[in-house]
């Protein structure tokens, strides 16, 4: 399925994500790394205060697209055309990978890169390269 080039919408969304970094980091000193926030909730022994903001963030993360869709007047959440087995395999790789790497597109790709963290720059270069390679070549060999 082809999709059209929508640079203005993409950049506007990026500004919202940057605003989220402002609110969370200047507000409570935390960074919005989604895999890290989810993993924090999966860990036992996390402080109650930490669980509260993490849980609230995820509630907002789920409600945000609902509000954005209402504002845009069209559904912005689209289904994935991939099959359930493929997505389950993809999910396992994403879970293990972001767990081992301590971050994903948000924690390393946005927050880490904007701090010029060497670990995040390396992680982002690698997952982008592997993402391009898999989507462009490898998945066709399956």
């Amino acid at each position: 399925m082809r999709t059209s080039f929508t640079p203005a919408a993409a950049a506007a969304g990026g500004l919202f994500i940057g605003a989220s970094v402002w609110v969370l980091f200047v507000g409570i000193g935390r960074i919005p790394g989604i895999s890290g926030i989810v993993r924090g909730l999966l860990r036992r022994g996390e402080g109650a205060g930490d669980r509260a903001w993490r849980g609230a963030f995820l509630v907002g993360l789920i409600l945000g697209p609902v509000l954005a869709s209402a504002a845009a007047g069209r559904p912005l959440i689209r289904p994935d055309p991939a099959s359930t087995p493929v997505l389950a395999a993809a999910g396992l790789l994403v879970g293990v990978g972001t767990g081992l790497a301590n971050g994903c597109t948000s924690g390393h790709g946005v927050c880490g890169v904007s701090r010029l963290s060497p670990r995040s720059l390396a992680a982002t270069a690698l997952f982008m390269a592997c993402g391009f390679l898999t989507a462009s070549v490898l998945r066709r060999l399956l």
């Binding site: 989604i34 205060g49 912005l76 948000s106």
Partner: peptide
């Protein structure tokens, strides 16, 4: 801290949706 977390999550989620990131085909 809970309210800040919620606000940051709303901005992040709205940003993902507006940008096209919640459309896996894109």
């Amino acid at each position: 801290t809970t309210v800040v977390g919620l606000a940051a999550g709303l901005l992040f989620g709205a940003g993902l949706a507006l940008s096209g990131m919640t459309n896996p085909a894109k």
